[in-house]
Design a protein around this nucleic acid. Structure first.
Lengths: 213, 213
DNA sequence: CGGAATCCTCTTCGATACTG
DNA sequence: CAGTATCGAAGAGGATTCCG
């Protein structure tokens, strides 16, 4: 009757007992950028099936990884990560970092969302190249705005604008994807007007270098 | 007829397409400690079912994550990680680190193996407490010997003895497990003769502190 | 209308038995 | 010892229906 599990006293096996099932870590990925409503999750997880999403959310709720909340303003129901859920972030980032090397090029019917940009940036972040950098970079990818704070050779990302970013990067979704897949260089993107970079030349250089392939 | 996948251009989703299926990351965990033969994998993964192990190994082989090798001396077949496979280590460690907080106590029929001790140590390793430490610790857990090298606030573990370790820790499997679950303190274990620690008092103190809960 | 539970089909899993 | 074959059980995916 109870959920399938590995029956091993190993912290990896226990972690996988809780979040190792199909779709679970992708749900966590969605919620890592903030509370989301049921329909938003369905939209960004094409193929999941409504029953499975409901089941996963219930399980994650029971395990204390996700909780239901009422967003203020328009009081609508949504799901958000608990502290235990947010603690999965390093693991998610490391998996994504590994995935970078194996992901290849997009396939014709691959889904893609600008909401994944913060995770993509964090996966590409290279701590060793960030020594001595203390800066805030703001990104606007087709209207999805977020910013990253680089400090102590680590990175944090948050939704929304930053108060006084050292660099602002504005582009559309297609260009950002082209940059991510390295089918377009930053120089080409700027020259063709598809990418706008604001900041001192030195700050811009740093902001690109810490994510260099 | 190809394998089930998420059809998302996201490096996390791609990673999970390759290693997100049931048992896969546990197979990787086993192989992270070195080449293993088919039967060894079956023994340490109770419940996996021989067909599923064969299927996973075939898939991982096709993806370039695992390869078959012939061990020298007695020429026996075994499986080992490719470089791409070993690159999963940080992700596995981060998942295990998260699992530490949620794993609870062993359940009656949980399987446990001393071979998981290196991973357990790495999951508990606290980089911030390792500043200034450059040392080698050797562990003998019921005859399973491995050593850890701490340097630059990072840890590496390898099977076998070290040439001149700063600390040697010798214990039996049960005691190591009791220490891991924190149902026994190091002091109690030493007093009762279940744990033997060799090294200078300062080195011993450090060797415990970097893994402190 | 958004948020889920139900139903049904297909795939995967797990256990055992079997083979090179 | 290293797998393959088989089959019942459980899980996944899609459409539809129900609930508020």
């Amino acid at each position: 009757m109870s959920k399938r599990c590995y029956r091993q006293y190993c912290s990896l096996a226990r972690a996988l007992d809780l979040v190792g099932e199909r779709w679970t870590l992708l749900i966590i990925r969605e919620l890592l950028s903030g509370p989301r409503r049921y329909q938003e999750l369905l939209d960004n997880l094409p193929g999941i099936g409504t029953n499975l999403l409901a089941t996963r959310l219930r399980e994650l709720g029971g395990e204390g990884i996700v909780r239901k909340v009422l967003l203020s303003a328009p009081r609508i129901r949504a799901y958000e990560l608990t502290e235990m859920g947010r603690a999965l972030e390093p693991a998610v980032v490391e998996l994504a970092r590994w995935g970078l090397a194996v992901r290849g090029q997009p396939r014709p019917d691959d889904h893609w969302s600008a909401q994944w940009s913060p995770l993509a940036l964090r996966a590409r972040f290279q701590a060793d190249k960030a020594a001595g950098i203390d800066a805030i970079y703001e990104y606007d990818v087709g209207g999805h705005v977020f910013h990253a704070r680089i400090r102590n050779q680590s990175i944090e990302t948050r939704p929304g604008t930053a108060s006084s970013p050292d660099v602002r990067l504005v582009t559309d979704e297609e260009t950002f994807l082209d940059l991510a897949t390295e089918s377009l260089s930053v120089e080409q993107a700027v020259e063709s007007g598809r990418l706008c970079l604001e900041g001192t030349p030195e700050a811009i250089r740093s902001s690109l270098e810490v994510f260099a392939a």
